[in-house]
Design a protein around this nucleic acid. Structure first.
Length: 108
DNA sequence: TGCTTGACTTACG
DNA sequence: CCGTAAGCCAAGC
C-alpha cells in the first residue's frame, strides 16, 4: 500500500538536513580550535545555536562554537572545556582570541 | 495550526 | 564600547 501524500514522507527533509549539516560541520572542529555560529550557518546563525543546544546527544563538540566576537554563549562550563584544550583567550579572559583559534571557515 | 523563543549576526548611531 | 533593529528558521508550546 503506497503512502498517502499526507504521510509526510519528505516534509522538512530540506530543513532538517540543515541542522544535520551544521552538526557535521561542527564535528570537524579539532581540539584547540573554535568556530562561530555564523561560520557554521552563514544565512541563519540562530540555527547553529538551535543545533548546538541539542548537540549533546550527537557527539558534537558544542563548546568549540563561540559567538562572532569570541564571547561564549554558554558560560563557565564552556570556558573550562576550552581552556582545558589550551584555546587562547584575549586579555580579560572572557573572549576567545579568534585571530589565533578560529578554524578557517573554508575547511569546515 | 499558529505564535513565540532564542547556544546569532551584521549594520548603524 | 553599548544599545537597537532587522533578518533568520527550527523548536516549543
Amino acid at each position: 500500500m503506497p503512502r498517502r501524500i499526507t504521510d509526510r514522507t519528505i516534509p522538512r527533509a530540506q530543513a532538517g538536513d540543515r541542522i544535520a549539516l551544521i552538526r557535521e560541520r561542527a564535528r570537524r572542529v579539532p581540539p584547540g580550535f573554535v568556530t562561530t555560529y555564523g561560520d557554521l550557518c552563514p544565512d541563519a546563525p540562530r540555527l547553529a545555536g538551535t543545533a548546538m543546544r541539542h548537540a549533546g546527544d550527537h557527539d558534537v563538540p558544542w563548546w568549540r562554537v563561540v559567538r562572532s566576537d569570541g564571547s561564549l554563549a554558554v558560560g563557565a562550563r564552556q570556558r573550562a572545556l576550552l581552556q582545558a584544550e589550551d584555546v587562547p583567550f584575549r586579555a580579560g579572559g572572557e573572549r576567545v582570541d579568534l585571530r589565533a583559534a578560529r578554524l578557517p571557515p573554508e575547511v569546515l
